[in-house]
């Protein structure tokens, strides 16, 4: 017995590639998965820039493995998008031509090695908050990819926090590096959950299709509540004078990020937007002759 798309969604069943689905759902899924894939690939750069400079071989190995995981996440996600009829090469072109977005968090620079730790703790932490519910997303290939990705992200978060713990036990200069990195990354991390619900036009449809399970503001609150005790254990101050526990709500109250800055960064005005895309464009054009050669060689084998 065939089940219609609406029945499957109502029963919390997964939608699989061969199932019929509304064109809007297909387009929304491709866009979301592609943006997620692009974020993994662009996200390799801020941390990747520290691999060759890592201060110990242990940290170098961890960082290299982490950046490799991100390439792997990009690969599964592009594959998930391809199950919907998208083409990886086409999605890459959309990225380097600025026609598809990636997470704005990666448009901030990594200024010290403490940034590697803070990206693991806060940025990967925020990503986990966003992504854990996606393991129950209605589109099967995406949900299954997210399970594996979340497992690796939890490892990434752990290594970041552990690096910060170690640095906080080091020299006063290192403790200052950690606090400085927290000061720079806290607000951009809160922005990772997207605009406030009142200004998030796509949320309602995505929730109805069970692509998204929680609103931006719900996830942001969860992230703040989780991060506060971690910051205390670490011995750093989160740079928000309005941050305090609200007994009545059972949650922390906190200040609003600078939403004008988020808009500016999303629309290309962040400190590193040009550099991030330039690097990807260069890798793509520098590698074109290699891909052409591989295709030519493969064609000889088939003739």
């Amino acid at each position: 017995m065939t089940v219609t798309f609406d029945e499957a969604i109502a029963r919390d069943q997964r939608i699989e590639p061969a199932d019929e689905m509304p064109e809007g759902y297909r387009k929304t899924m491709i866009r979301q998965i592609a943006q997620h894939a692009h974020s993994e690939i662009i996200g390799m750069q801020p941390e990747g820039d520290w691999i060759t400079r890592a201060p110990t071989l242990h940290r170098k190995a961890i960082l290299l493995a982490k950046v490799q995981d991100e390439a792997g996440h990009g690969l599964y996600l592009y594959s998930a998008a391809e199950t919907l009829g998208a083409d990886r090469g086409d999605l890459t072109r959309r990225l380097i031509e600025g026609r598809q977005k990636y997470s704005s968090i990666f448009n901030y620079p990594t200024l010290s090695f403490a940034d590697v730790g803070v990206i693991g703790w806060l940025v990967d932490g925020a990503a986990i908050c966003n992504q854990v519910p996606l393991c129950r997303s209605s589109y099967g290939p995406y949900a299954r990819a997210m399970i594996r990705i979340c497992k690796e992200e939890s490892f990434h978060q752990r290594q970041g926090y552990e690096l910060l713990m170690t640095m906080m036990r080091g020299t006063p200069e290192q403790r200052a590096m950690v606090q400085d990195a927290v000061d720079r990354w806290w607000w951009p991390s809160l922005m990772m959950f997207g605009p406030p619900d009142a200004e998030s036009p796509n949320t309602a449809q995505s929730m109805a299709w069970k692509i998204k399970r929680h609103t931006n503001d719900e996830l942001r609150q969860r992230f703040v509540d989780m991060s506060v005790p971690q910051a205390a254990a670490l011995g750093v101050t989160l740079p928000d004078p309005e941050l305090r526990w609200n007994e009545a709500r059972g949650h922390h109250d906190f200040g609003q990020p600078d939403w004008a800055e988020l808009k500016r960064v999303i629309t290309g005005g962040g400190p590193m937007n040009e550099e991030r895309i330039r690097r990807r464009r260069e890798a793509d054009s520098d590698g074109a002759w290699v891909r052409e050669a591989a295709a030519a060689h493969a064609a000889k084998g088939m003739s």
């Binding site: 691999i51 170098k60 950046v67 490799q68 260069e282 890798a283």
Partner: peptide, 14 residues
């Protein structure tokens, strides 16, 4: 390590 983020294809990155 200097090739990371600069490989011609994602599979080669990995």
């Amino acid at each position: 390590q200097q090739w990371v983020t600069r490989a011609p294809e994602l599979e080669d990155e990995l």
